[in-house]
Simulated assay, not measured.
Amino acid sequence: MTDKKYIRVVGAVIVNSDDEILCAQRPEGKNLALKWEFPGGKIEKGETETEALLRELDEEMECRIDVLDKITTTVYEYDFGIVELTTYYAKILSGEIKMLEHVDMKWMNRENIGALDWAPADIPAIELIQNYKGAIK
């Protein structure tokens, strides 16, 4: 049994018109410094996963997204707590993406995203994304 904090978070797997996926790098000085992740964040009390994702993307990148199909939910135990990450496909509706929370970001083909140094909770979603053969709409 652990006394670690349980943290529920959501991540957006944003796909552009070239079928590339947005990858974002965490800042130095925070948990998982310089690891890559899907943008998103903590689910606040009383929020749905979709509401949290819409709010977080507005706060972190000043863009509006359309939340599409759920990819997966994974649970990973870090030294700072237990993270439950739910990822969704998403597309940008409006706004130019700004890096307000991240130190770097890049659009990558889904076949190549595994080459980055990802936060462990994101890795199961990456494997599903790489094996997904359909069009993301």
Rank of each mutant, 00 (worst) to 15 (best):
E84A: 11
N109Q: 13
Y78D: 09
P124Q: 10
C63Y: 15
I71P: 05
D3N: 09
K137Y: 04
L85V: 00
G41C: 03
K42Y: 04
A119L: 09
I129F: 04
D104K: 12
D69R: 07
V75A: 07
K4E: 07
Y132I: 00
I43T: 06
M105A: 03
N131I: 04
F38R: 12
G95C: 07
H102E: 04
I21V: 15
R8F: 12
G134E: 05
W107H: 06
N31F: 10
E20F: 10
A33L: 02
G134R: 10
G29S: 11
T87I: 03
T86F: 07
L100G: 01
M108R: 04
E20L: 14
E37S: 13
L128R: 09
T2P: 04
K137L: 02
A33T: 05
E111W: 07
E96L: 07
K98H: 01
D18L: 10
K133L: 04
E51H: 08
H102Y: 13
T86W: 09
L53H: 10
G40L: 09
A52G: 14
Y88A: 02
N16L: 04
D3S: 12
I136K: 13
P27A: 11
R8W: 11
V13I: 04
E60G: 10
L57K: 08
K45S: 05
G41H: 05
R55G: 00
K45W: 03
I71M: 04
T87R: 01
D69K: 12
I126R: 13
I82K: 08
D3H: 12
